[in-house]
């Protein structure tokens, strides 16, 4: 039997399907989620580098070898060497812990602030919600990097300042999101039902509104770590973060800037690693988000 028995397509009758437009076929389910698989693999790699850097590093990240300075990538030095002959690959590996730490720390600061402020703005009573809501608008209208720079000017540059600066700088955006989520949950049928059942305000907040409003934040947390690392490395790049002898990725970039004409790999490779991590975090976040949304509708 050949394909002659396939039923003819409804020629123009019935609901105007996507067939007429011809270009809007929807792919419902890809066979293998390659992006997710790659993202999970790189996550494992980054986690190992952060926890047991000695397992994956090939050299001592601080050992100087002046005759071997500024060598391009080779089998002996996978990512090349810096101006003091230190192995860039091992430095990137050893820098993972600090860079990830700053990113995770900043994401935690940012989301904790966002939850507190967003909840206040949504449920804090008339005066509190007006004041906090207005504050959020003001803070949001500051470009986040400027808010961070203002904080660094006040506190002076250090890893802790970087965490606070990035965390506080990115918090207003998330706080607005939390406020929206809570307001949506507040108007939902299940909260109305809980009110009708006579549950207390505290119980409704704890048991119904917060869990539902904050669930999407799990995905946002992953996105936020990637974003925080990019922000923090931008600050280091400007010379306003962790100081250069440290192998933190942003500091590697800052140190490599001086040699951009003769040793481009010193900036290109750490930058590539940051991009890879940010992409990984974004991909994981997107999949988590989709997964959580599916869970809600099921």
């Amino acid at each position: 039997m050949t394909a002659t028995h396939t039923p003819p397509r409804s020629a123009g009758f019935g609901p105007a399907g996507p067939g007429l437009a011809g270009t809007t076929r929807r792919v419902t389910r890809p066979a293998i989620r390659w992006d997710l698989a790659i993202a999970l693999a790189t996550t494992v790699l980054f986690a190992v580098a952060a926890v047991w850097p000695q397992l994956v590093a090939t050299h001592n990240p601080f050992a100087m070898d002046l005759p071997a300075s500024l060598q391009p990538p080779s089998p002996a030095h996978w990512f090349g060497t810096d101006e003091a002959g230190r192995d860039l690959y091992s430095r990137v590996v050893y820098g993972t812990r600090e860079s990830l730490g700053i990113g995770i720390g900043a994401a935690l600061v940012s989301l904790s602030l966002a939850i507190v402020l967003g909840t206040l703005a949504a449920l804090g009573g008339r005066v509190a919600s007006a004041v906090v809501g207005w504050l959020l608008e003001v803070a949001f209208s500051f470009p986040a990097l400027l808010l961070s720079l203002l904080l660094i000017a006040v506190l002076g540059p250090s890893a802790l300042t970087q965490i606070l600066a990035v965390g506080i700088g990115t918090a207003p955006g998330y706080a607005r999101m939390v406020r929206g989520q809570i307001l949506a949950a507040k108007d939902s049928a299940y909260v109305e039902a809980a009110v009708a059942l006579g549950h207390s305000r505290g119980r409704i907040l704890r048991r119904h509104i917060l869990p539902n409003a904050l669930r999407p934040l799990v995905a946002v947390f992953a996105l936020s770590i990637g974003q925080s690392i990019v922000w923090a490395s931008s600050l280091s790049f400007l010379g306003l973060g962790v100081a250069p002898p440290s192998p933190e990725w942003g500091a590697l970039l800052d140190a490599g800037r001086a040699f951009i004409t003769e040793a481009g790999w010193l900036t290109v490779i750490p930058g590539l690693v940051i991009v890879l991590l940010a992409l990984t975090a974004t991909t994981l976040g997107r999949h988590l988000q989709r997964f959580l949304e599916k869970g809600e509708t099921a």
Binding site: G173, Q181, A184, Q289, E296
Partner: peptide
């Protein structure tokens, strides 16, 4: 549910 794809959603 509001869609929240980007961190600093405008």
């Amino acid at each position: 549910m509001t869609r929240t794809s980007s961190a600093e959603a405008p």
